[in-house]
Each structure stands twice: as C-alpha cells, then as structure tokens.
C-alpha cells in the first residue's frame, strides 16, 4: 500500500519542481484575503489578515495552538458563522466575489469548497451513502451516475481497492485513517475547487498520516489545498507556501522553502526551531 522509497523521492522532487515552476508559470489566486478581522463576541481572533492563496498549490497554515488557524480556515467556507456572535470585517475574494458579503450564498460557496476536519466525521451510514451524500443533496439522483461518482471519489482518495467490496458496510467500522480518507473522498464527490483541511492527521498514527500526505500531493494536481497543521515537518514536506500565524496575525507568508530555511521574521525562526508553541 505505501509508496516505495523511490516514489517518496519522486514526491520530493515534484515538490521542488513545483517551486521552480512557480517562478515561471503564474498561478492564479484562488482566495484573496484583505484586511480580515474576526471577533468571537469579545475575542479578537483574527487581526488584519492579508493573504493571497494560489490555485492548485498546497498552502500550509502553521502556528501555536489558539493563534487562529482554525478560525481562518473556517472563515474561508464561512463555517465559522455557526458560532453565535461572530463578526467579521474586511474581504475575502473568491472567484471575483466577496464571500463575506451577506448576499453570498454559503451553500454555493461550500459546494465549491470542501472541508476535511480534525476528527474524521463520517456519517453513521454505509460507505456508499457517505460518498453519495453530497451529490444527492445537490440533486443528483441517477443511480448509475451516483455509482460512478462513488467509485471515482474513492479512487481519488486511494481507498477504492480497500473498500470496493465493503461499500454497504457502516463507515464506523473503518479504522481512523480509513475514515479520514473516506471523508476526503466524500469531499471529492462534489468536485470542489478548493479543499480545506484542519489538522487532518492530528488524530492519526504515523502510517495513516503518511498516506494522507501522499494523497494531498496527488490532489493538488486538481485542487487548491489549504491545510492547517501543527506539525512543522508536515508543512515542510507537503506544502508549496506556508503562512505562519501568531496571536491572530500573519507573521510571515512565503514559499515553504524560504519559511523553513531562511525566515524573515525572528518569531518565525523561533517557532520553527521549537522555541515556543
């Protein structure tokens, strides 16, 4: 199941290639955040965030716990609004529209922006129904189409081989790592443009973590991926760009290589070298 070490090398090489590519081919911006501030009632959780996130790259968000990583990523699909008393100012432009605008329909946004949570959260339904859920709520009823979507999404998350004979089993019977990949597959089923991941591997063992990291590398060919992680090695391994958050502010945002080898800000350096957080 796991890639050979040779393949791992490839992944790393790919990474470098991309970094080189970045200089030449201009990546379009998928999310343009300008002067974003967010309050939970009285807590000022995000302060003057300015970030341009590129399409079809992996953008990592790192920072100590409580610095606003989850808050930021949940603002990108407006899930943060589920918390009563949240206020925002500033703009986040996605496909030329400000998603923070009240007239922007959150359902449309979330159809195009998938999310994978810290703790795998499959529905207490069969594996098949988990994947078919998204297409169904968006009006796709044709059984043949659904079958195709299910297979394609499971293949996309590299668990088709493991699960193809268990499609009618309850998803709760799967291991933690499988559940998380099932959740990724569930995301893929509605073909989003962006996938948000909030510490997707923090509850997983190293082997499952590695599989998800490999998966992310594959997925970025098709999707823009924004991943929150508290694991700096992970950010270094899989991301193209890295944003370092501290106390609700973006301290530094740059190519991952730069952040990890030659950071501008001393606070970034402190964090990366493990001096706090």
């Amino acid at each position: 199941m796991s890639l050979s070490s040779e393949n791992k090398m490839n992944v790393k090489l790919n990474n470098k290639d991309m970094a080189v590519n970045n200089i030449n081919s201009e990546h379009r911006v998928v999310y343009d955040t300008k002067d974003l501030n967010l309050w939970y009632s009285d807590t000022h959780a995000l302060k003057d965030i300015n970030l341009e996130i590129n399409e079809k790259e992996v953008t990592a968000i790192i920072g100590p716990s409580g610095c606003g990583k989850s808050t930021y990523i949940k603002t990108l699909n407006r899930m943060v609004e589920l918390v009563p008393g949240v206020r925002t100012t500033g703009t986040i432009t996605y496909k030329n529209k400000n998603i923070l605008d009240k007239s922007f329909k959150v359902e449309d946004l979330r159809t195009q922006v998938g999310m994978v949570f810290q703790k795998a959260n499959p529905f207490p339904k069969s594996i098949y129904e988990n994947i078919a859920y998204g297409p169904k709520i968006h009006g796709i009823r044709n059984k043949k189409v659904l079958d195709e979507i299910v297979e394609k999404s499971l293949r996309g998350a590299y668990i088709w081989d493991e699960l193809k004979d268990r499609l009618n089993e309850n998803a709760y019977g799967l291991s933690g790592g499988q559940q998380q990949r099932l959740c990724i597959a569930r995301c893929l089923a509605i073909q989003p443009d962006v996938i948000l991941m909030d510490e997707p591997t923090s509850a997983l063992d190293p082997k499952s973590t590695l599989k998800i990291e490999e998966l992310v590398q594959e997925l970025k060919k098709e999707f823009s991926i924004i991943i929150v992680t508290h694991n700096m090695q992970q950010a270094a391994r899989i991301s193209d760009k890295t944003a370092f958050f501290l106390n609700g502010e973006v301290v530094e945002f740059d190519d991952t290589n730069t952040i990890f080898t030659n950071p501008n800000d001393s606070r970034t350096e402190d964090y990366i070298s493990g001096r706090f957080g």
């Binding site: 449309d108 159809t111 999310m115 529905f123 709520i137 509605i190």
Partner: peptide, 25 residues
C-alpha cells in the same frame, strides 16, 4: 455537532442537514 458540520460543509442547507443527518441519527 460534527455530523451536521460535515453536512453543512458540503453545501447542504440547514433543513437538508436536519432531515438527512440529524433526524436519522
């Protein structure tokens, strides 16, 4: 709550989430 979050995050409306996820559970 994480079950309804999963549903809402896929673009389901509130009532869809209630009818298809919360109520069945």
């Amino acid at each position: 709550g994480y079950l309804s979050e999963a549903s809402l995050a896929m673009g389901a409306t509130k009532w869809q989430t209630i009818r298809r996820v919360v109520l069945p559970a």
